[in-house]
C-alpha cells in the first residue's frame, strides 16, 4: 500500500519534471542545475532558447569582466591585446568542434576535460570558499554563473565562426 502510493507520487513527479523540460525548452532558459548532457559530452539544446549573436560573443570572449577567455586563449583574428596561452589556441575551434560540443565546453569545461584549469562558466555551486566576485568577501551559494545562458550562446556562436 505504502509502496504503491510512493511509486505513484514518484511517477507523477517525474512526469511533471519531464513535461516541464520539454515544454520549457522552446521558450524558457535552462537553469545551470537542469542542463541536459547528451551522449559524448554534448549539450544539444540551446540554454537560452534564443540563437547566439557572434558579435556579442566576441565582446564577451574578450571582456575582462565577462568571459575573459583571452586570459588563457589566443584567437589570431581577434584584436584583443595580451592574449594568454594557458589554454590551446582557439583558431579553427568552429571546425574542430560542433556547436553542441562548444556549448558543453564553455558551460562546464571540467565535464568535458576532467581536471581542466578552465573555469566552469555555467555552474552555481560546489565551490571551496567562494567569494563575492573579486572582493575577497565570502559569498553564499548558489552564486550567479560566470556567464548567463544568453552569453554562453553568444560565445558559442562566436567560436562557431572560427573556421580553419
Amino acid at each position: 500500500m505504502r509502496f504503491w502510493a510512493a511509486a505513484i507520487v514518484r511517477f507523477i513527479a517525474a512526469s511533471v519534471i519531464a513535461g516541464a523540460v520539454i515544454w520549457g525548452a522552446a521558450q524558457a532558459e535552462v537553469a545551470p542545475a537542469d542542463v541536459a548532457w547528451g551522449e559524448g559530452n554534448v549539450i544539444a539544446e540551446s540554454l537560452s532558447g534564443t540563437p547566439g549573436n557572434a558579435g556579442e560573443g566576441a565582446k564577451i570572449y574578450a571582456e575582462k569582466s565577462l568571459g575573459n577567455c583571452v586570459a588563457c586563449h589566443v584567437v589570431s583574428n581577434s584584436d584583443a591585446d595580451f592574449q594568454g596561452n594557458v589554454g590551446p589556441s582557439l583558431d579553427g575551434a568552429g571546425s574542430r568542434w560542433t556547436e553542441e560540443q562548444l556549448r558543453a565546453i564553455v558551460a562546464d569545461a571540467k565535464h568535458v576535460f576532467p581536471d581542466s584549469v578552465m573555469p566552469s562558466f555555467y555552474k552555481t555551486s560546489g565551490y571551496v570558499r567562494p567569494g563575492e566576485g573579486f572582493t575577497g568577501k565570502p559569498a553564499q551559494e548558489p552564486l550567479k554563473p560566470l556567464l548567463n545562458a544568453q552569453q554562453i550562446e553568444d560565445v558559442v556562436a562566436y567560436l562557431a565562426t572560427q573556421k580553419e
Partner: peptide, 25 residues
C-alpha cells in the same frame, strides 16, 4: 593543491602546471 573560488584554481594550477605561460598580460 586545493582549488579555491568560483574559478576553481589552485596554486598548483598556475604556478606548477603553467609557469612560463602567459595568463593575460
Amino acid at each position: 593543491y586545493t582549488r579555491y573560488g568560483q574559478l576553481e584554481l589552485s596554486c598548483a594550477n598556475c604556478h606548477q602546471q603553467n609557469y612560463g605561460q602567459m595568463i593575460r598580460a
